[in-house]
């Protein structure tokens, strides 16, 4: 290796072995659900004895699951559409503030990521109940936006700290309007980071369990909420199907980003 020490081949081999074992440990759970979703059996088993699309049909034929998938998709798209623009603007704005204000405002904006999710969930349950918004899509999206904002903010702050603001001044001095500067100079250069933060916001909403458990319900119950409930009651391979579908959506999103050169 590069550190100037002579390592014995045995040590090197051992290190590689352990490191690869850890990678396998991290990756295993993501992969075993895929074959399980194609199981033909009644129970969860890995590897399955026989394969079929039985549980996929079960998923597609169940109103509970399809309605949850619809609610999750709507919530994730709305969360992304709201959290990304306001998060980008906030990251830009906070960069222009003085040191003290920057610490204060930045600290407040990342607060939803620091506070235990259960507290936000319980607190929002009270507030939304009082406002008569419990179980509505608006209440759910509001909460998901709050959880997605820190992610967008952190990614975009990192992006803006690499951004040369002299370009903005140059564009302005050449007669571009504020809107033109954003549309023609700022956004094109930060496209990669904006898309990465959109992806993270989308996944944050898609995977969110605790808040959804408390504030979503009825027609607006999300996939994670329904999944969590059914994990406690009876476990059947439909859950593996849902997991595979969610995994596929997240993977697809990453692949699209990578192909567009957004994620390094």
């Amino acid at each position: 290796m590069l550190d100037g020490f002579q390592h014995s081949p045995l040590m090197t081999g051992l290190k590689w072995g352990l490191a690869l074992l850890l990678v396998a440990f991290l990756a295993a759970p993501s992969f075993i659900v895929v074959p399980m979703s194609f199981s033909a059996g009644e129970f969860l088993q890995f590897p399955p004895q026989e394969y079929s699309l039985r549980w996929y049909r079960n998923f597609a034929g169940s109103i509970t699951w399809t309605s949850a998938a619809r609610a999750s998709a709507i919530a994730a798209v709305l969360t992304t559409l709201i959290a990304v623009p306001i998060g980008v603007l906030a990251a830009y704005g906070v960069m222009q503030l003085g040191r003290r204000m920057r610490m204060l405002v930045g600290g407040l904006i990342v607060l939803p990521a620091v506070i235990p999710a259960i507290l936000i969930a319980v607190g929002m349950f009270f507030v939304l109940a009082r406002a008569g918004m419990l179980g509505t899509m608006a209440g759910l999206v509001l909460g998901h936006v709050a959880l997605a904002i820190p992610v967008v903010f952190v990614v975009m702050t990192a992006a803006f700290s690499q951004f040369d603001f002299a370009q903005e001044k140059a564009a302005r001095s050449l007669g571009a309007s504020g809107v033109q500067v954003w549309a023609r100079v700022v956004i094109p250069q930060l496209r990669g980071s904006i898309m990465a933060s959109a992806l993270l916001a989308f996944v944050t909403s898609l995977d969110e369990v605790v808040l959804s458990m408390f504030v979503s319900g009825g027609d607006n119950a999300t996939l994670p909420k329904v999944m969590f409930a059914s994990l406690r009651d009876q476990i059947d391979p439909t859950i593996a199907v849902v997991s595979t579908v969610m995994l596929a959506v997240a993977t697809l999103a990453v692949v699209v980003m990578v192909r567009r050169g957004a994620v390094r």
Binding site: A28, P29, S30, I32, V33, V203, L206, D207, V209, P224, M227, F228, L231, I235, I239, A240, S243, M246, L247, A250, T251, V254
Partner: peptide
């Protein structure tokens, strides 16, 4: 990229 629930379940 895998949800917490999926991982717990796995």
């Amino acid at each position: 990229w895998t949800s917490l629930l999926v991982r717990a379940y796995a």
